[in-house]
Amino acid sequence: MVGVAFTVFLAGSFFRLISMWRLAKKKDGLIFSYISIFFALRSIVHWILPFAGVSMRKHPAMTIVAFLFHVCLFAVPIFLSAHVILFKESWDISWWRLPDMAAEIMSWSVIGSCLFFLGRRIFLPEVRYLTSLSDYLILAAVAVPFISGLWSYHQWAAFQVVMIVHIISGEIMLMIIPFTRLSHMLFFPFTRGYMGSEFGAVRHAKDW
């Protein structure tokens, strides 16, 4: 099961990147001419540092939540001690583990962030207008593994069932990354890098 999920995620991501690469070669050849590693990195760095850009400074709450969310979203599943132990059991590989307390706080942060994003979708008109069912589903796909994970950790009612939910929802989230809007994880460096190159090398301007 886990193997299937990882395979779908990795193979799917690989497939999406390769097919997009080929499509770009065929239809958007200019990307390859104009991409500049220096300016691509310059732009990416400015967008992965909190408050480095004007847009981020204009929305401090969104910036803090978005960064917290993404950091925790990556760190918890990878460094959660229970997960590391499972990897150790299955493949005899292990790495640094998060203290349980930290992992717990971070998981609550993810859930809180999801609620914040949900709130934006519901209460901010400009976001509500753009939101469709799929956006809610994706938000749920991210939140459910964390809610069920905490639930199982605390061994609340029916945690055995919730544990199954946790495993399946986690695997679903992993598997849909390449095929939904979650693929911004894969494409972010390319879209940002390309824009950074155009702005930096051709237009001699900042893009943050």
Partner: peptide, 26 residues
């Protein structure tokens, strides 16, 4: 982690093999 691993494999591994007994963390 190595010690934890052998404990988990010793108990959980057998439970899985025998298809009986607890296997989830909690």
């Amino acid at each position: 982690a190595d010690l934890i691993r052998v404990y988990h494999l010793q108990c959980g591994g057998c439970h899985l093999k025998q298809k009986t007994g607890p296997v989830m963390c909690g």
